[in-house]
Amino acid sequence: MTYETPVIQIENLSKHFGKIIAVNNISFSLHARSTTALLGGNGAGKTTTISMILGLLLPTTGTIRVFDEDMLRNRYRALGRMSFSSPYIDLPQRLTVRQNLTVYAMLYGLHRIRDRLETIAEDLDLVSLMDRQYRTLSAGQKTRVMLAKSLLNEPELLLLDEPTASLDPDTADRVRDYLEAYQNRTNAAILLASHNMAEVERMCDHVLMLRQGHIEDEGSPADLIERYGRQTLEEVFLDIARNREAIA
């Protein structure tokens, strides 16, 4: 794969659940060292799209290539190089943070697991939490553990579903700093689903606005704000969600 080859390349992707069209013929690509946001209201198709990229959900039609691998045929060649974090999927509650991270480090085939755990615990301020059961952590602490789990394998592609949900503003800001530093160091591509428009404006160089399963509009946050004649991305989001026209 060359540097220019997209990390993710999606063409004409659709997912139908019976008569319900969750994702409707979307195409987009994502390159190394870029951050793209998937924005849209509830039911717009964000989680369905991410699930299909991860291989948790089979598309009805279309193709998904990650690291130039066809995810319908060879997803295991790509899965070790990517990762995912979502506050809506949990980790085993009765295991300690260290035990959970050890299990996932083994699942990702890491070497020198103890060293890796020490590093990631220091990076994400988890040192004092490592021997606590996951179920005893606050929502914000769980989100940080989940992020640690998703970064264990140093992914070249990171799919994040609301990465700063449940975090206080200070911790959320530190997580964004950390992700930006991580991306600068590794050239990782990040696909982010978020309802936090300030976060998207800060972190993302490209935004895909989803509505009823299709891409209603796309562009950089600055382009979209200008095109819709608005002050913030949140206002653009509301225009699209409520089906208001862009200012020509």
Partner: peptide, 24 residues
């Protein structure tokens, strides 16, 4: 939270992916 993320490359950290792995 430190922004000095570790500097090992991803490939060094992981073993080669195998169709079946005793480690997994």
């Amino acid at each position: 939270m430190s922004t000095n993320t570790s500097d090992k490359s991803s490939g060094e950290m992981r073993t080669q992916d195998r169709p079946i792995s005793a480690q997994r």
